[in-house]
């Protein structure tokens, strides 16, 4: 019983990070039809941002804010420098552009800083554990879940209650008509990238806090998982991305926790098989985008 609770908390905290990343990927994809594989590097940049801020002896909350701000800046810069000139290009071209951006950033960090992980020391209270009788729960897991809930809530408010949020939802459906309403295409696209950057920044804070270090490949694996989550949820569907993130996280954590030891080496294979199985049952994803019939 205790382990189940513990594993559930772990699943929610890991799934929450995937959900934030997947939501960022889906937000950008829904607007510009770009699967941004450089999204992981936004996360990496945020990680180094936190590391740098802490080196400058800034207090931890400031360093965390700096990390998120750097991620927003990085996502906006990527859009402006790499993706805006490619606007309207076909999906493959955009995809390859994002791979190029991703590789360039990785190499810059490998050669500019170090290919090895650099340690990050966060305040002790973050790495403490909460004792609930027989169960011990990491503080960072609780903080992660709270941060994810807040971020998702803020995102839902933005999309439902603000004119720019309305414009974003509309743009996911029919960008040309949004422009006919007088809303600037560049603003909507920039907002989508800024949101994806902020979500990646928050994900980076949580990731770094759980692992205690940053390396040039830090973002690659979680974003790959997040990409799987967006496909599982239904490509282009924001709700689906979040749901997919939690499912991928849960599958991973529960397999790790409950598989017999002999089967543990096959954990990734089993988890991907489960996801493929779900996609066979629901080919459009668990929560498909409403507007699949778009020219």
């Amino acid at each position: 019983m205790g382990t189940l609770l513990q594993q559930t908390v772990n699943a929610l905290s890991l799934g929450g990070v995937y959900a934030l990343l997947a939501l960022g990927l889906a937000t950008v994809f829904s607007i510009v039809r770009l699967i941004n594989f450089a999204h992981g590097e936004v996360m990496t940049i945020a990680g180094y941002g936190i590391w740098w801020a802490l080196l400058l002896a800034l207090p931890a909350p400031v360093a965390i804010l700096a990390g998120v701000a750097v991620a927003v800046g990085a996502a906006l810069a990527m859009e402006r420098i790499a993706f805006r000139p490619m606007r309207g290009a076909d999906v493959t071209t955009l995809l390859i552009t994002s791979f190029a951006v991703s590789e360039i950033i990785k190499v810059l960090f490998q050669n500019g800083i170090s290919a090895r992980p650099v340690p990050i020391v966060l305040p002790a209270w973050l790495t403490s554990t909460i004792d609930l009788g027989a169960v011990r729960i990491g503080m960072i897991s609780v903080v992660s879940i709270a941060a994810v809930v807040l971020a998702l809530g803020a995102m839902a408010l933005l999309l439902r209650r603000t004119p720019l949020g309305l414009a974003m939802r509309a743009a996911a459906e029919d960008f040309a008509v949004v422009r006919l309403m007088g809303i600037k295409a560049n603003h909507v696209v920039a907002l989508a990238f800024a949101i994806s950057g902020a979500l990646a920044g928050i994900a980076a804070v949580l990731w770094v806090a759980q692992r205690g270090s940053v390396d040039p490949l830090m973002g690659a694996t979680p974003v790959l998982k997040a990409f799987i989550a967006t496909v599982l949820g239904g490509l282009g569907s924001l709700g689906g991305a979040v749901l997919g993130g939690f499912v991928v996280g849960a599958v991973e954590v529960f397999l790790q926790g409950f598989l017999p030891e002999a089967a543990l080496p096959y954990r990734e294979a089993i988890s991907l098989s489960i996801i493929i199985g779900l996609l066979v049952l629901r080919p459009d994803g668990l929560w498909p985008a409403a507007n699949v019939s778009r020219s």
Binding site: P163, L166, A167, R169, A170, E173, D174, V177, V178, M181, I183, A290, N291
Partner: peptide, 13 residues
């Protein structure tokens, strides 16, 4: 905009 409500369509206009 099919996925937006009638009022949201109008407000966006």
């Amino acid at each position: 905009f099919a996925s937006l409500t009638v009022a949201e369509n109008l407000l966006l206009g």
